[in-house]
Design a protein around this nucleic acid. Sequence first.
DNA 1: TCTGGGGTCCTAGGACCC
DNA 2: TCTGGGGTCCTAGGACCC
Length: 419
Amino acid sequence: MLGLADCNNFFVSCERVFKPSLAGRPVVVLSNNDGCVISRSNEAKALGIKMGEPVFKIMDLVRNSDVKVFSSNYVLYGDMSRRVMDSIRNMVPAIEVYSIDEAFIDFSGVSTEKLKVMGEAISRVTRRDTGIPISMGISHTKTLAKIASRLSKKYPRLNNSCFLEKDSDIRKVLSTFPVEDVWGIGRRYAKMLRNNGINTALDFCNASPEWVKSKMSIVGLKTWKELHQESCITFEDSVDDKKQICTSRSFSKELSNIEDIYQAVSYFASNCSEKLRKQKGVCSQIQVFILTNYFREDMPQCYQSIVVPIETATDSTLQLVKISCRALEQIYNPLFSYKKAGVIFSQISKKEETTGNIFCDFEVAKHTNLMSALDDVNIKYGRNTLVMAAQGVEKIKAFSNHLSKRYTTSWDDIIEVKI
DNA sequence: TCTGGGGTCCTAGGACCC
DNA sequence: TCTGGGGTCCTAGGACCC
């Protein structure tokens, strides 16, 4: 059997841990630049606030209903996530961290009787240890475990854990479960399915596998099999290295001066390089893209992107920033104002498995030493303590007007401990 | 005024190979 | 009338996830 532990309203729950007075009140967390709502408490959901809704559209509601608003604080959420995962890991045979707020659990070898108790225990202990409420779902496959965890969120009498095992129970649950809520069925397929008279997960199960494959490819067929209790999405207890690494941001205002965009692109490339070195990789292809604000109908629009191969695969920030900036020059057009840009590294391989290039025009060892010094400093003294000059001193600041403290990782605390 | 960011997998079609 | 056949690799686009 497989389990899914899913944190309830995760970002909001993290904020509440450090401000218990927010319990029972409507709370939302916003995306970068304080743009959209990306996490909502149950009270905020009850007010009709939608996922992804731009905050300026609900300002009246926020004021009238006294909704508490937070900017996103990823340092805090990342650290809380690690604590939640550690807590779960202590209680079970193996976990697969699937996202910042979800983990699959491998329960092979655990008896049915024990499972029922364990689900509730995991939820209770994690809450006690971290303050974060989680919903457990346990069933035969990942897709069914997802559905089970949904149910435990919906029905309080389940005590935060739903164990879905018997055929008859599964059929009953699927018969009322909306097809668009099934893991793996997104908006497009849901629409197609509904147009074909398939409204519930059970309707989908009753469709023929040939039809499902012809309409939704092998991916859709896997979902179909998973609902039929045939496990197709395997449990992975180790994290694969990333095949591409991306950093992109919207700017808080439109930028038309290339100097400003250089700084942003340098920062993106530098950030990607750091992630690349963390997985001990080198990359040999960079993509840079810039785009205008597509909400501004009064302005000319463009999306420009360029892919640049790199002769000698590298992990050096110096090199990668330089190449990214040269790429930017090729797509930048002074006639446009840009709202967003990004850098994507791809063709990633393991550094130790990569052969050198005798025509290489820079000294690899020197760069490697420099980069490890750079990483050491930034690990020890905090991210972005040491940066490339190209990133600029004046960072292009994002709006972040409702930011909570870095309760669990703050620099001041670390200094105090050190002293 | 204001609209997120970072990934994965699959398929179809074109280039190229022998 | 009639135009080889079987592969691989790459890319763009489309779907999905959180």
